[in-house]
């Protein structure tokens, strides 16, 4: 009996957890290892297939080499692409979190009927395929697009339109990630007890103070999740920057596709992937570390009560 319950409590769950891990290790982990080795000049083993037809690759004579990374940072175009990737990701993530907070506050504390309308509206992007969304958004926001035509008829002609620029990419990323952001932050706000807010109001706290001293501190974790998940998604995004962005600078997700498909340089494409992956892993570490310290703080708080 004891043996059986240990089986149910420890070993079976572990084995169940291993099934998706196995899929991930074979079809994501192994390819990532191959890709990283390839960027260091290893063209043997399974990498021989891709290396056989590649142009301009750096091959390590013996051991490994940083040559491919040097080539990346020597190219001023690619440095510009990396910079564009970082600021587009940063800006779209910050805007998304701000907009998601406003909408979540509105759904929680605003007019109930309009809140219902808003909560249907912000869900829509979740259900529109990204290819369609990018196409619809760029025809709307481009220089000779639908919005420009509307503004033109109203006599406004000198406004720069963001379609086919990096700002267009920011708009596209905010549009597609909005449902995720609002869902997470609303759920966090819903979990703040109404009693707490009423108590704050009763002692005469202003909305700004309530926001900064109650709502924001209590929703650090949902906000952090939105920040990290959105930024990680934006860093490696392809469809939106490809259809909505400028030709140069490009986000690295687009550049790596070009280097692979058009220039036949898979190694440089993998160098870009590894660089983005490192940034994304750094962000994920922030998530795990601050989650841990937040949990510890909560544990201490509940003990002291």
């Amino acid at each position: 009996m004891r043996g059986r319950s240990r089986l149910a409590e420890g070993i079976l769950p572990f084995l169940a957890g291993c099934v998706p891990i196995l899929v991930v290790l074979v079809f994501t982990g192994l390819p990532i290892v191959l890709a990283v080795l390839y960027t260091f000049g290893d063209t043997g083993g399974l990498n021989a297939t891709v290396a056989a037809v590649a142009q301009h690759q750096v091959v390590a004579k013996d051991g490994l080499t940083l040559g491919a990374y040097r080539a990346f940072f020597d190219s001023s175009d690619l440095r510009a692409d990396l910079w564009a990737t970082l600021w587009i990701t940063g800006l779209s993530t910050v805007i998304l979190v701000a907009v998601a907070w406003v909408l979540a506050l509105f759904v929680r504390f605003g007019n109930r009927r309009l809140g219902h309308v808003a909560s249907t509206l912000y869900l829509i992007p979740m259900f529109i395929p990204v290819v369609i969304a990018s196409y619809a958004l760029v025809t709307f926001w481009e220089a000779n697009g639908r919005l420009a035509a509307l503004l033109n008829s109203a006599g406004i002609t000198h406004l720069g339109m963001p379609g086919y620029t990096s700002l267009g990419v920011v708009i596209g990323l905010v549009w597609t990630e909005l449902p995720f952001g609002v869902i997470l932050i609303s759920a966090g706000l819903q979990s703040v007890p109404a009693v707490l807010i009423d108590a704050g109001r009763d002692v005469g706290a202003s909305w700004v103070r309530l926001l900064w001293q109650v709502l924001v501190p209590l929703n650090k974790i949902p906000t952090l999740i939105v920040l990290i998940f959105t930024a990680v998604g934006a860093l490696g995004s392809f469809t939106i920057p490809d259809l909505m962005g400028a030709n140069s600078p490009q986000m690295l997700g687009v550049a790596m596709t070009d280097y692979y498909q058009s220039y036949g340089e898979p190694q440089m494409a993998e160098v870009m992937s590894v660089i983005i992956f490192l940034v994304a892993l750094g962000l994920s570490c922030i998530y795990v570390v601050s989650l841990r310290s937040e949990k510890r703080r909560q544990a201490m708080r509940s003990e002291s009560n």
Binding site: G17, C18, P20, I21, V24, L25, F27, T28, G29, L30, P31, I32, L34, A35, Y38, L46, N47, T49, V50, V232, L235, G236, F238, L252, G253, M256, T257, Y260, P266, A269, E270, M272, S273, V274, I276, F277, A280, L281, S284, V288
Partner: peptide, 25 residues
């Protein structure tokens, strides 16, 4: 395990697919 499932999703898709192509061949 949960972090592995999430973190491997952070590798850019096209970079992953290039490497997977070698494996798939």
């Amino acid at each position: 395990m949960m972090m592995t499932i999430f973190a491997t999703g952070a590798f850019p898709k096209i970079g992953l697919y290039i490497a997977i192509a070698s494996l798939f061949y």
